[in-house]
Write a protein that binds this DNA or RNA. Structure first.
Length: 445
RNA sequence: GUGGAUGUAGCUCAGUUGGUUAGAGCGUCGGAUUGUGAUUCCGAAGGUCGCCGGUUCAAGCCCGGUCUUCCACCCCA
């Protein structure tokens, strides 16, 4: 007997209902990406293993899904383990494949290059709620420009997407240069990574535990004291800015970061659905971000975790041999946006895709006539179906009901003779007899 | 990768200190209505109790292993 079928851990099937909703999210994001001048790009599901290893830190390397060698190559690898059992791996994110693409095709690309990419990525992580081993990323990056106008546009892009999705969000922004400045001013600039990863957890574990963690990582009490002003920071950017300028006066790096942030705040202007907020505790993706850092959180729903991220990286393509290419990019977490929209009931009630009208099937003659009508309806741009089998009518009506089809056009023997259809509005339950010529007009209104 | 929970019908879940033939609601299917869904009434089907092994006269229940899902950490979308 066949064993019960299943799918790998951390992967999911998406039902038609779920897919309509997912496509709604993807197409909303894609439309905005295009409006901002980003062009589509796709890269293979698999990359050469060496393209990926070492790009995500020690922790990241462990989470890369490796693809086992096959055939004779595998036999050889099993005998001599020194070269490893895998030469390829599934992509871990979209940014590194993008960097690889840019380097490989640098002579064909016109810079600044703006691309978007909506594809699944894989991580050999331990699944949890909202964390999968296969999930989609929706990335937009521009590379080959250091202008802060890019940062400004990305903030506006966030605003546009979430306005279209009808969700209130906060866009948090920070600058890696400010974080370096904080470490500088504290007197232990070499501890910047430890300081920053601890600060990053502030809203989750609180000030005391953050200080505890810094102490555990070897940050001195004097330095922790020096970071204290961070915890007292409050108010809007215009209130925060002078405080930061005074506190971080000794660090030229920090001053530059503050200047850049101010430019972004000033240039963004009024926003529709998003609130822009400076968050000094924001540190994500420290490995390659060098300037601005972005994160978006929903102001509705209970998810709490971030639904988008991004930032500027000064030397993303350097590891592949192309130096001095600065880029800035963002990523939408479609799966988490789905959860928030689902929880807050923000999905549109009717998401296209469902058939508008179903023609009943009473038998060969009626069906052949229905087929002709079906063609006319479709020519008129109306999604229509003919029930394929001449089963009892209740079953055909139930099919329409379950599928959310708006109208059922009953064509039996009497309708066939009189050239009419009996049209039932499935929402109201009303039913009336109309001529075939009227059908398209009534159904499309 | 570390620590802790979880798994019973398609779905959500009951199931007594281990005791005969494992239940409910929803859904599905059939009928009431051979030309009408959603609502109503009647009826039926559907389970190797995640899987493998052990203890026992007897296991859905106890023990071990394994897998899944979930939670915390790590990290992250």
């Amino acid at each position: 007997m066949a064993t019960k079928p299943s799918i790998p851990k951390g992967t999911r099937d998406f039902s038609p209902t779920e897919m309509l909703r997912r496509k709604y999210i993807f197409s909303t994001i894609e439309r905005v990406f295009q409006k901002y001048g980003f062009l589509p790009l796709e890269t293979p599901a698999m990359e050469n293993l060496e393209t990926l290893t070492g790009k995500y830190g020690e922790e990241g390397d462990r989470l890369i899904f490796k693809v086992l060698k096959r055939g004779a190559e595998l036999e050889r690898a099993l005998e001599d383990r020194s070269k490893g059992l895998a030469a390829e791996a599934l992509r871990y994110d979209l940014t590194v494949p993008f960097a690889r693409y840019v380097v490989q095709h640098q002579h064909e690309i016109a810079f600044p290059f703006k691309r978007y990419q909506i594809q699944p990525v894989w991580r050999a992580d331990r699944p949890q709620k909202g964390r999968y081993r296969e999930f989609y990323q929706c990335d937009a990056d521009m590379i080959g420009s250091t202008s802060l106008i890019n940062e400004v546009e990305l903030v506006q892009l966030f605003d546009d997407v979430f306005t279209d999705l009808g969700l209130k969000v906060v866009v948090k922004i920070n600058d890696r240069k400010v974080l370096s400045g904080i470490a500088e001013v504290s007197g232990q600039p070499e501890k910047v990574v430890d300081i920053v990863t601890a600060i990053d957890k502030l809203d989750k574990i609180g000030r005391e535990k953050v200080e505890e963690e810094m102490r555990a990582k070897g940050v001195s009490d004097a330095a922790i004291q020096g970071i204290a002003p961070l915890f007292e920071l409050s108010g809007t950017w215009s209130e925060q800015r002078p405080v930061l300028e005074r506190w971080l006066a000794a660090s030229a790096t920090a001053q530059q970061g503050l200047k850049d942030l101010s430019f972004t705040f000033d240039a963004v202007g009024a926003m529709k659905s998003a609130v822009l907020e400076f968050d000094p505790t924001l540190a994500r993706g420290l490995d390659y971000y060098t300037g601005a850092i972005f994160e978006v959180k929903a102001l509705e729903g209970s998810l709490g975790s971030s639904i988008c991220g991004g930032g500027r990286y000064d030397d993303l393509t350097g590891v592949f041999g192309l130096k001095g290419m600065s880029g800035v990019g963002i990523s939408f977490g479609a799966d988490r946006i789905y959860d928030v929209l689902q929880e807050t009931g923000k999905f549109p009630a009717e998401l296209g895709g469902s058939t508008r009208v179903l023609i009943t099937n009473f038998g060969a003659a009626e069906a052949m006539h229905g087929l002709k009508l079906l063609r006319q309806l479709r020519e008129a741009g109306i999604a229509a179906e003919l029930y394929p089998d001449a089963v009892k009518l209740a079953k055909q009506f139930k099919y329409a009901n379950d599928k959310g089809i708006g109208y059922v056009a009953v064509i039996g023997e009497s309708e066939l003779q009189s050239g009419t259809v009996t049209l039932k509005d499935m929402r109201t339950g009303e039913q009336r007899s109309i001529s075939e010529a009227e059908l398209i007009a009534v159904v499309s209104s």
